[in-house]
Amino acid sequence: MDLELSDDQRMLQDSVQRLVAEHYDLDARRAAMREPRGWSPAMWSAITDLGLTMLPFLHEQGGLGLGGVETMIVGEAFGRGLVVEPYLPSIVLAGTAIRECATPAQTERWLPGLMSGGMIATFADCGSVAARQEGHDWLLDGEARMVLGGDSANLLLIPAGVHLFAVPALAGGVERRGYRLHGGGTAADLRLSSVRVPDTDRLAGNGSTSRAIEAGIAWLAAEATGAMQAALDLTVDYLKTREQFGKTIGTNQALQHRAAEMLVEAEQARSAAMYAALLADEPDEHIRATGHAAVKAVIGKAGRFVAHNAVQLHGGIGVSEEHAISHYFRRLTAIGMILGDSESQLGRLAALGGFTGASPHFAAA
């Protein structure tokens, strides 16, 4: 099977890598994190100008109609650059939920603002919210924890039982407590008290919100792959240049073996990210569920191994704020926890009957 990128995909890869390389060094990342919203409006504008916010949406919805492989390309480049802008919550999670679950009329209402970058949305799946109908409206009560990008979002997509509601962030009865995340980016805890939502804001399409979580896992796998490769490259360069007792520490065979083990784990994560990208067009819900659970378990384990060893091989400088390795360590640690850690995903995989992909589905290749 040919897994080489097409010419168009390589052009996309070059464009995104150039964007990150030219606009997103470590100082720029620190500056973005100091912004009031925890990310840079200028960088977000550059991302939208390149058309990346239109990437996963269908042509008939005004998007570019690209798929999982293209999203993987963007995620890997963002992971290498440690980009903190809200692409995951707004475009991947909320965008997928709207694409899959909204009616055509609702799509026309929300997607243009999302694709233009003028509206930031998020998917508040981590909580317990109850909905009760009152006439032509719904009343929402409950809370959601660690909603990615929830502090700066304009639109909140909130699951409540079998329903999914689009709630303006400034709606009456919505309280949110925002905070910065360990590995970059922001989140918020939400409390909803009799939040009134018209029935026209209930996403009534036939899609499933599980698609949003799957898209999020695929994005995190790609982002982790980029971050792991960057951390490995920095570590190998350090081993080649750091001298101790009159020779570079990279001549130590034990450290060479450690770097080789990091490479193996990074390549396993890359394979998992590719598999997640190919699952985007898989129609079988069970195959998608088991596949994404396995992917998330793999990237959590691999990311933890690469991050820990990168810090150890750098020594004390690896935990300093001034060195990029500490930032990769924190982001990979965070990725391992977002949307379920390795242990919970392995439990989910077992409950689903195990990973049955002895002959994986690669029809999307």
Rank of each mutant, 00 (worst) to 15 (best):
R330K: 10
A169F: 09
E108I: 08
C101K: 05
E285G: 10
H323V: 05
G51F: 14
D25H: 09
D125P: 10
A42I: 12
A266N: 09
P41T: 01
A144Q: 12
L155P: 01
S40H: 04
T356P: 00
R180T: 09
P89T: 02
A46P: 01
T48V: 12
I338G: 00
G113S: 11
A227L: 12
I98W: 03
G291Y: 06
H292P: 07
T122E: 06
T48H: 11
D233E: 15
H163S: 15
I73Y: 05
A121R: 12
A131W: 01
A280T: 09
D27N: 11
S45I: 08
P41C: 10
G81N: 01
R258N: 03
M119P: 02
G51V: 13
T103M: 13
E282T: 09
V236S: 12
L170E: 14
E100M: 04
E22I: 04
Q61A: 04
V92G: 02
S210Y: 06
T290E: 07
S90H: 11
F305V: 02
T53H: 08
M54P: 01
M115E: 10
Q345K: 10
D125G: 15
P360N: 01
I338S: 04
E60P: 00
D284P: 07
T333I: 00
S359T: 10
G318S: 04
S128A: 15
A46C: 15
A218W: 00
A363T: 03
S45T: 15
E265L: 08
E261Y: 01
D14E: 08
G79S: 05
L26T: 09
A280L: 05
A42L: 13
S271M: 13
I317W: 05
L181C: 12
L279Q: 02
G357H: 03
H361A: 02
L190I: 03
D125E: 14
R177P: 01
M11D: 06
T53G: 06
S116H: 13
H308D: 12
H257V: 08
A171P: 00
A21S: 13
K240I: 08
E70T: 01
A269Q: 09
D284K: 09
S6N: 04
I338K: 06
M54E: 14
G353L: 01
S344F: 06
H308M: 00
